[in-house]
């Protein structure tokens, strides 16, 4: 892409977006613990909400990082975020109740190491590299944990590697039909990786505006949540999965409508079946 990347000025500062993102994501992921406390599965959808918060925050991190002229690096930033995040996430799921908090610490340490390697050892020399890669690693790990806890109803490692299958009417425990054994985590990886990079990649250009990009981020988050909700039918009770699907759908319809409104506001013109209008300056 030979596109000049320009970032909109003003708007909500990045630090505030980060604060809302990390607090919102952690609170929502912790709310899935209500499943354990109440012995049901209906609170699983909070995991997806946590992932949406993380995607919303990660979009602004990618925007900050990629404003240093990394045009084709926008999709790659999404991939490294989830790629490093999956390591932190898998390690953190062994920590029991402390998993979400532990995840942030492990991911931060990992992110600093990766940021140092790419900035100082590979000599990329981008001033915000270490900080943004740290943020993106935490974001990637939070997305994975959020969607994984939405699909399985828990953020414990043991629940992600065991599933049940019906064999001649008898329910048996199996590794094959689990989140990790069935590689559903690979799907979540791609859902998160594309969702986190798409909003800035889609909205970049001279007239990029922060509220539109962030609305697109929320829209991508809820869209991924719909997909995870459909897959959660394999792990959760039908009512819990349907509730998750419903919440995701309502969130997606609202954000998608708002995104179209904002695009209409920002567009030069909004035409239906009209010919090319040559610019006033001439081609």
């Amino acid at each position: 892409m030979s596109v000049k990347v320009e970032v909109s000025e003003g708007g909500v500062p990045h630090d505030r977006i980060m604060a809302i993102g990390i607090v919102g994501s952690l609170v929502a992921i912790y709310l899935t613990y209500l499943n354990v406390l109440t012995g049901t599965q209906i609170f699983s959808f909070f995991g997806g909400i946590g992932a949406v918060f993380a995607i919303w925050w990660g979009t602004d991190s990618i925007k900050t990082l990629c404003s240093y002229g990394i045009g084709t690096g926008v999709p790659s930033a999404g991939m490294i975020s989830l790629g490093s995040g999956v390591i932190a996430m898998l390690l953190a799921t062994k920590l029991g109740v402390a998993a979400p908090i532990g995840l942030v610490i492990i991911a931060a340490v990992l992110g600093v190491i990766l940021g140092f390697l790419s900035d100082k050892v590979l000599n990329m020399n981008i001033p915000v590299m270490i900080r943004q890669l740290t943020e993106l690693t935490i974001v990637g790990a939070l997305i994975l944990l959020g969607f994984a806890s939405m699909a399985t109803g828990s953020f414990a490692f043991i629940d992600m590697i065991t599933g049940t299958t019906t064999f001649f009417g008898i329910e048996i425990a199996t590794y094959t039909y689990s989140l990790i054994g069935g590689s559903v985590i690979a799907v979540i990886f791609m859902l998160g990786g594309i969702a986190i990079q798409h909003p800035f990649n889609a909205c970049l250009g001279p007239n990029e505006s922060q509220d539109r990009t962030q609305m697109c981020a929320a829209e991508c988050g809820f869209l991924s949540m719909i997909a995870v909700a459909v897959m959660s039918f394999a792990f959760l009770s039908v009512s819990a999965a349907i509730l998750g699907l419903l919440v995701a759908f309502i969130g997606w319809i609202y954000t998608y409508n708002e995104y179209i409104k904002l695009s209409k506001r920002d567009a030069y013109d909004w035409l239906d079946a009209k010919p090319i209008r040559e610019p006033k300056g001439g081609a």
């Binding site: 909205c203 970049l204 250009g205 001279p206 007239n207 990029e208 539109r212 904002l262 695009s263 209409k264 920002d266 567009a267 030069y268 013109d269 909004w270 035409l271 009209k274 209008r277 610019p279 006033k280």
Partner: peptide
């Protein structure tokens, strides 16, 4: 929409 500056309509 981000190309509004160049008069590209949607």
């Amino acid at each position: 929409a981000s190309l509004a500056k160049f008069e590209q309509p949607v």
